[in-house]
Design a protein around this nucleic acid. Structure first.
Length: 648
RNA sequence: GCCGGCUUAGCUCAGGGGUAGAGCAGCGGUUUUGUAAACCGUUGGUCGGGGGUUCAAAUCCCUCAGCCGGCACCA
């Protein structure tokens, strides 16, 4: 038998007999390492420790606490959970059970639904299986063998999975004691390696292969970690995220509410509407500087108009319609673009007019499926910071790059600097000829490359195949928030279809009629959703320029009332959004209330301040107090409240 | 839309067959207060809507709606 050379992470290489297992290699290094080893990284690929090594290789032995082991802990947990469920409910079919961010899930086909009490039962059974510490062993089966086995067990979904494995790929079975599963692997050496830092988190419905027409499955989600401390930290983090929930903060900050007569629709309270209008005012200034013109198009238009645009065919089921007394059917606009094309068409356009940038804070109406609604993040009536840019084909690159610059600059003003851009390409259901799609996709792909180059790789990019709009491909801008969550907001879509469909044209330099290309773009996306994202990102602690109520002047004694009112007048004159709190309450009570309402600045005034013409300043989130002359604090706050685009 | 859970006072929640309870908020007083809840008193609910079972339903059943967690969807 010939020997092979194995190179370790420290660069040292040693000779082993060909076919040596990772386990044997670990043993040769040290007994303690062999004891701790759960898997190996063989030539860069995470593999079973028992796998034979047949050629010269690089090797890292993975122990349970290595980062590489985490996905194994989760994957093994999924298998153990599946065994537990089948032990508790014989006849349940298993389907798939992948590792996901922070955990794992497994989808089951079971007639009776899981009930909440089942969770503890399953966890207890999982602990038993882990304690049993049966080794994970791998076997290679033939397709026929596997299918016969799963057929005998009534595992019809597994048979489909066997059939889906490409020819030439080997079919692996992992056993843990008596239980086995079809699986790509790898796994750790035994169930005991999983440890006890796991928790089942929720039951959910799902669909076989994600097809809503297909069989319904029941999914169980779990989270698993290498240590109890990490599990506790994760659960703590979930709790923190819940505290940021915009639905909860929206109520506490008195921004908006929902009620069942208007599902998916927001009742904006005064403070919430102030925030909303602050965003629009900001965006108006940015658009004005970027040579956009703002317009407003009708909220309702006749159905045939939407048939012409293609929206009725593609999304008719999701449009709000109303039949008028004269029996004509009108649709609430689900998008602004067809309206903007009408404005473009009004009056003959020359190539000299291009690029023509038409913007609208248009409220669109989409009958979203009831199950999709989610606070302000997914509603049925929302306002887009929408714009359509009419250009010639050779202006695409230039305009998309300008949009990109504006996009990144705007996000930066809100503190979002970690941006990720996806290129979504042609979907199956689409309008327009393929050569137009080729052109549009090529254009955006070039833009993406250029953006990446210009940002020196700081902006991350990816391709998202088949996810484009029905009329064109799109670039989608994804922001990362303060606690690492991704939010897709901006979008740039190149459209070769709608302008010609709706008969838009311009007169080119050669006096010929030409069809313009249209770029659809939004930056906040939905104003409602962006507001929700801001609330969650800042955990309610909005920066001063965004805060709907910026300052509250609270009195300690009623003798200071007159001075407090005077202070308020100064603040308002300086353009600050301020109120007084003259109530007959202790200062502790007032401070607590305004803190809970997330007022960024509290100015406290008593006799002393009134006499000295000062205020005691307390900032949200801090207990520090600073006594400052009234004139000075007004100046300081007015400066701080200046929107970022108005600073120099 | 699909699966599961939930819906009791403005808010947070208790009560699980014998015709409703707490804290906070609100209101009325007292208190003039120094940086996250002063004190006393008090109002308030056909228990999400509708139907059924029962001598009796907030409680059990059916149904509709909304919300929550996922799935599917997201022009």
């Amino acid at each position: 038998m010939s020997d092979i050379s194995i190179t370790f992470p420290d660069g040292n290489a040693r000779t082993f007999p060909k076919g040596v297992s990772g386990k044997a290699v670990a043993e040769s290094i040290s007994k303690s390492l062999a004891k701790k080893a759960v898997a190996m990284v063989l030539n860069g690929t995470l593999s079973d420790l028992a796998d034979p090594i047949d050629a010269d290789a690089t090797l890292k032995i993975v122990t349970r606490t290595d980062p590489e082991a985490l996905e194994l802990i989760r994957h093994d947990s999924a298998h153990v959970m599946a065994e537990a469920v089948q032990a508790l409910w014989p006849g349940t079919q298993v389907t798939i059970g992948p590792v996901i961010e922070n955990g794992f899930y497994y989808d089951f086909a079971k007639d009776e639904p899981f009930v909440p009490e089942d969770m503890a039962k399953i966890e207890a059974k999982m602990r038993e299986i882990i304690d049993r510490n049966a080794p994970f062993t791998k076997e290679f089966w033939s397709r026929d063998e596997a299918k016969a086995f799963f057929k005998s067990k009534g595992e019809l979904f597994k048979i489909e999975l066997v059939d889906a494995i490409p020819p030439g790929e080997s079919l692996k079975i992992y056993k843990q004691g008596d239980w086995l599963d079809l699986c790509r692997g790898p796994h750790m050496t035994s169930t005991g390696q999983i440890g006890k830092a796991f928790k089942l988190t929720r039951f959910a419905g799902s669909y076989w292969r994600g097809d809503s027409e297909g069989p319904k499955l029941q999914r169980i989600y779990g989270t698993a970690w290498a240590s109890d401390a990490e599990l506790a930290a994760y659960l703590k983090q979930i709790e923190e995220a819940e505290k940021r929930d915009h639905r909860k903060l929206g109520r506490e900050m008195d921004l908006f509410h929902f009620q069942e007569e208007a599902p998916g629709s927001i009742f904006w309270h005064a403070k919430g509407w102030t925030l909303f209008q602050t965003l629009i005012a900001y965006m108006r200034r940015r658009l004005d500087k970027a040579d956009y013109q703002e317009v407003n198009s009708p909220d309702m238009m006749e159905k045939h108009f939407w048939e012409l645009s293609g929206h009725w065919e593609n999304y008719g089921e999701n449009m709000f319609t109303t039949t008028l007394p004269d029996e004509r059917v009108f649709c609430c606009k689900p998008m602004n673009c067809p309206g903007h094309v009408q404005i473009f068409k009004h009056g003959l356009k020359s190539y000299r007019d291009l690029p023509l940038k038409i913007a609208e804070f248009g409220k669109v109406h989409r009958y979203e499926p009831s199950g999709a609604l989610h606070g302000m993040l997914r509603v049925r009536h929302f306002t887009q910071d929408d714009a359509h840019i009419f250009i010639t084909e050779d202006q695409i690159m230039d305009e998309c790059l300008k949009i990109n610059d504006l996009m990144l600059s705007i996000y930066k003003d809100f503190g979002f600097e970690d941006i990720f851009i996806k290129l979504s390409t042609r979907p199956e259901k689409r309008v327009g000829a393929d050569d137009l799609w080729d052109k549009a996709e090529k254009a955006l792909s070039d833009v993406l490359d250029e953006v990446k180059r210009q940002s020196n790789g700081r902006v991350k990019t990816a391709i998202n195949p088949g996810e484009g709009a029905f009329y064109g491909p799109k670039l989608e801008y994804v922001l990362k928030d303060a606690i690492g969550r991704d939010w897709q907001c901006g979008t740039t879509q190149v459209d070769f279809n709608l302008p010609s469909r709706l008969g838009a044209f311009y007169i080119d330099a050669d006096s010929e009629k030409k069809t313009p290309v249209m770029i659809h773009r939004a930056m906040f996306g939905s104003l409602e959703r962006f507001t929700g994202i801001l609330i969650e990102n800042f955990a309610g602690h909005l920066p001063l320029w965004l805060s709907p109520l910026q300052v509250v002047v609270s009195t300690i004694v009623s003798d200071a009332d007159a001075y407090a009112c005077e202070a308020l007048a100064h603040l308002k004159t300086a353009g600050l959004r301020a109120e007084t709190d003259l109530r007959n309450e202790k200062i502790n009570y007032k401070v607590r209330e305004h803190s809970l309402a997330k007022v960024p600045v509290m100015l406290v005034v008593g006799k002393r301040e009134a006499e000295e013409r000062t205020v005691s300043v307390r900032r949200l989130g801090s207990q520090a107090q600073e006594v400052v002359p009234l004139d000075e604090i007004v100046r300081r706050l007015a400066d701080e409240a200046t929107p970022p685009d108005l600073r120099h």
